[in-house]
Design a protein around this nucleic acid. Structure first.
Lengths: 186, 186
DNA sequence: CTTCATCATGAATCATGGTTCACTTTCCTG
DNA sequence: CAGGAAAGTGAACCATGATTCATGATGAAG
């Protein structure tokens, strides 16, 4: 229903080269990298970018989707481990740290969401939300997590992480922030 | 040493109109408002903007300075009150909330720092830092504030506030975050 | 009331970067 | 292997927005 005829071989090849180049450059320099730069890095002409992604926003969105997908997998894996008996709070903490570090690396990927009006909306990622809910519930059952903490709270936490700060600052920030999620505090 | 001859009357007048207009527009629409728009709002020609502020960055910087100045006064006032006997932790909490709300209003003012490379660097504001240190020390003396909390931690807190979120989210965020600063937690 | 140093004006200039499209090249089917 | 559709190319086009500067206006000193 989507693809009347399959993509031509060279088209497939180029599409990948473009996405890779875009990912690299956007990660490194932010979403404001010129299309020309991405094209050059991909070894393709600008026109080709536009054949595959009708607009820059679309391209950025595609890169973003990759990132979100990876993060979703991370959450689901954590949920799996907990289901297999691992300590929920431990997994949750590690997960938060992992997601933040990934985002800090991919820096611009995050900024991309704002900068361009690319579709990000983690709230919409049902899979991630489901897995995260599972983790939260488990943590609360263990009495480690404050009972009123929600998925939205975690998204808020991730959204406010100081991604542009050096690692040590990010760590300090986690130390300062996490207590608010703990059952004991408050 | 700075002003060989005093500014001409109309120059003074225009300078103020420009700063006011810039403040308004940057606050409302962010630092990306065109210079032309600011000029129009100020009832002046673009050229005049450039006479007073050689570069857009300078103009944004000037607007920023105003904001920082206001915030500095807020901190100093809080310190004064504590010195006069008020409860330090209470003042500190109120101060954080006040500064965040102000920034949320002035939204763009904050964004301005990033967007344009305008000089912001709150760390450099010695006066504010001094007053804040006083508040922190007092809070720790009362046993309300965790003993390892520093001025930098508060700046980090402010820097990560979700300014673009609605009021309720900001409040929730404070509820979640502040416990990490409390002596009891951790 | 001159006079001129300041200041203001705003059209023109420059730079950047997204997007288009007439034309060429490449795949793939028959 | 010929033919046409699919894909690629990149110079040109367009929009936006910062910055300049030749020219005109206006404060203030004498």
């Amino acid at each position: 229903m989507t693809q009347a005829r399959p993509l031509r071989a060279d088209a497939v090849r180029n599409r990948k080269k473009i996405l890779d180049a875009a990912h690299l450059l956007i990660t490194r320099h932010g979403p404001e990298v010129p299309m020309d730069a991405i094209a050059e890095a991909a070894g393709v002409a600008v026109g080709t970018l536009y054949r595959h992604y009708p607009t820059k926003t679309d391209l950025v969105g595609a890169v973003l989707s990759r990132h979100v997908e990876r993060m979703t997998l991370a959450v689901e894996e954590a949920a799996d481990r907990v289901r297999a008996g691992e300590h929920a709070m431990t997994e949750l903490t590690a997960l938060v740290s992992r997601v933040i570090e990934a985002a800090a690396q991919d820096h611009a990927v995050k900024a991309a969401a704002q900068g361009v009006g690319a579709s990000y909306a983690p709230e919409n990622d049902t899979r991630a939300a489901a897995a995260l809910t599972e983790l939260i519930t488990a943590g609360q059952a263990d009495g480690d997590l404050h009972s009123d903490v929600t998925v939205a709270d975690f998204y808020l936490l991730l959204a406010t992480a100081p991604l542009d700060q050096p690692r040590e600052v990010r760590d300090r920030w986690l130390t300062l922030t996490l207590p608010g999620f703990t059952a004991a505090a408050r």
